[in-house]
Write a protein that binds this DNA or RNA. Structure first.
Lengths: 165, 165
DNA sequence: CAACAATACTTGACATGTCAACTAATTGTC
DNA sequence: GACAATTAGTTGACATGTCAAGTATTGTTG
């Protein structure tokens, strides 16, 4: 019995079947992440009335909110990013320009620059929280919590072989 | 019994646990895709001796190889991309500049531009094939084929709710 | 068959990402 | 305490991505 074309195969109009489960998984991962990225990017990027963010900028704000009042040095933020961000300095430049983040050279170690989220940054995140939370639960209808947990677990193992650099 | 911090949590040094399985899945997906993207990007991007490609450029070449001698119109390529590529024209401009793709205005419908992979493009892909195939099988040791298939299936369902634009 | 809409790209302007130097401050090391 | 090595961040140059508006060509409709 010839298996029907997979969903992904149809999506990218590929006529040959995939060479392996590995290949299909990798492409499916890329495509899903790209769609998700655009989906969330639209939420943080439209701003409603106020400031527009990129996904990366949003991630920085989230990290700084988590860090609280002490803030974090620049490269420590980079280390916590979900996606690598070699251009962290300029990323934060833009957030500072929008008044969402404040920077200050650290007195104890003058090489460091401590970054803190501003009142305005916190307010912006607060406005986005609901929409973001909802968008993370968007899969509730089609994927069970058990499936999500298995997914997380498999992704963990995949990253373990990609580590590092 | 308090569950230990998840792997992802440690990776991004997050002190609070994730709000939900959905959130952890979304972030894990982003992180895994980013790492994979860099991994594959390094393969196609170093060129060895010859031409360097971006992941997107590589994807275009793969699509054109699959299309064979008739080639494909520009936007049809865009439709088949794994990741959306609004800048498809300039993406192909660069491939043409490197001599990997040839373009020709379609005689039947002069709005269209037919793109074909060149001899050099095919040769480049041939040189990359082995490395790419190997990189897609990199997970063989840590993730079973059954797990990969389940992963693919869950990703399919996730994309179904993201559709569309 | 003229006029309007739709299609298939192209282009411009600008934001963002990326890599490789480069500077400044701090930490060993003898 | 001088000097190299390390760490933290910045900058420049350039590639790529993104959105909106523009152009040429083909369908469609009164």
């Amino acid at each position: 019995m010839p298996s029907r074309a997979s969903r992904l195969q149809q999506e990218i109009k590929q006529n040959q079947p995939f060479r392996s489960a590995g290949q299909e998984a990798v492409l499916g991962l890329f495509k899903t992440a790209d769609m998700l990225r655009r989906h969330v990017g639209k939420i943080v990027g439209q701003g409603g009335e106020a400031v527009e963010l990129t996904l990366q900028q949003y991630n920085v704000l989230r990290i700084l909110r988590g860090a609280g009042a002490e803030g974090l040095p620049t490269l420590e933020i980079a280390a916590r990013m979900v996606e690598q961000a070699p251009g962290i300095t300029r990323l934060i430049d833009r957030l500072e320009a929008k008044g969402l983040v404040a920077r200050e050279r650290c007195p104890e170690d003058r090489r460091r620059v401590t970054c803190r989220i501003s009142r305005a940054g916190l307010a912006l995140l607060a406005r986005l929280d609901d929409q973001i939370n909802r968008s993370e639960e968007i899969f509730a209808g089609v994927v069970s919590v058990a499936d999500l947990k298995r997914l997380v677990e498999v992704l963990d193992r995949m990253r373990s072989v990609l580590e590092t650099k």
